[in-house]
């Protein structure tokens, strides 16, 4: 019984942690892309990398102030959306899927190569202390929570983690508010009509390309924000932290929670991380698997979950069954 409680407690701890925040933001971005606009972006991790690199490089290497660095992160994500969207948004949906995943990998390979090591730190990335100030310095200095360990019942935090968690969830709440107010507006209506049939939207005088681009930028900036939260929490930036799997996990979270719903991606991320933690800890703590094998096993289970969800409950936890029936 103690084992069970311990598993549960540490899993809840994981579920509300920074990783879940990062995924909630990234998946919300995907929700704008895929859930509402029907854009198959499989390179969300590329936007995350752009946001993270924009912040880390501008602050640590070019020594701009922290808040300018945040702006650089956002602009980097916008830039990627423009460069990627201009050629591919006119093409079929699956072309976008392939080219976004390719672009994300190009970004990762390039920024981890020694060719750009001067800026990106190559394979070692940018630890927080590079360039004197370090991109996390201001962030940590802003932390009003006195150093120490805090516990609320089962939940345990260090002051740095608590700071990330508080700011992160506020950010997630703001993002939900933003998406809600956009999607109930006529803008949201146009975007959803594009998801259903872009020729119909075009025939009604809507500039489909412009709307797709706006949606790509919005979702990309949310991805970039997720990337910034990630590196602020980790305290360092390195390109190999941004692998294609991240996008796939974010999709799993989105679909689990329910695409095209405001809270779907958030609930999905919480559930995703909770399930990951529970499965891994159950498998290892109960001795079913050696500690090393937990990672691959749980990810295989994630994949299985994604398949099962898509087959049997494609609308996710919050999705509308009535709408989903029509998707076929």
């Amino acid at each position: 019984m103690d084992v069970f409680l311990a598993i549960l407690a540490s899993s809840v701890n994981t579920a509300i942690g920074p990783s879940a925040i990062v995924y909630a933001l990234a998946a919300s971005g995907l929700n704008v892309h895929y859930g509402y606009t029907g854009l198959l972006n499989f390179g969300q991790v590329g936007f995350m990398l752009m946001g993270a690199a924009g912040l880390a490089i501008s602050v640590s290497i070019f020594e701009v102030p922290f808040f300018v660095g945040l702006l650089c992160g956002v602009l980097a994500a916008v830039l990627l959306a423009l460069v990627l969207g201009a050629p591919t948004l006119r093409l079929r949906a699956d072309y976008l899927a392939i080219s976004t995943i390719a672009a994300a990998e190009i970004l990762r390979f390039t920024s981890r190569s020694n060719t750009l090591a001067e800026f990106t730190g190559g394979p070692f990335g940018i630890p927080s202390q590079v360039g004197g100030a370090g991109f996390t310095q201001t962030w940590n200095a802003m932390n009003p929570i006195p150093p120490g360990r805090y516990s609320f019942g089962w939940l345990q935090f260090t002051h740095t983690r608590l700071w990330v968690v508080i700011v992160g969830w506020i950010l997630v709440a703001l993002v939900c508010l933003l998406i809600w107010s956009l999607m109930r507006s006529p803008w949201g209506r146009v975007v959803r009509s594009i998801r259903e049939d872009e020729d119909a939207a075009r025939a009604l005088g809507k500039n489909v390309f412009a709307y797709k681009m706006q949606a790509l930028i919005l979702g990309g900036v949310l991805g970039g924000t997720a990337g910034m939260v990630l590196v602020l929490f980790q305290g360092s930036f390195f390109a190999d932290g941004f692998r294609p799997e991240l996008t796939f996990y974010a999709y799993t979270a989105l679909i689990m929670g329910g695409a095209a719903t405001i809270f779907g991606p958030v609930l999905g991320s919480l559930t995703f991380w909770f399930l990951l933690a529970v499965t891994e800890r159950t498998l290892t703590l109960t001795g079913i698997l050696p500690s090393g094998a937990g990672g691959a096993t749980r990810l295989a289970l994630v994949g299985l979950l994604l398949v099962i969800l898509m087959v049997f409950r494609p609308q996710g936890i919050l999705g509308n069954k009535r709408e989903m029936v029509l998707d076929g």
Binding site: A296, T297, L299, V302, L306, M310, G328
Partner: peptide, 26 residues
């Protein structure tokens, strides 16, 4: 046969990818 949407099937292939890759790794 169930006339599952293509996008839905595409996401299923991603799930399959995760399963196969991690089983291979194990």
């Amino acid at each position: 046969k169930r006339r599952t949407g293509l996008i839905q099937m595409l996401v299923i292939t991603i799930g399959m990818m995760l399963v196969l890759r991690n089983v291979n790794q194990l």
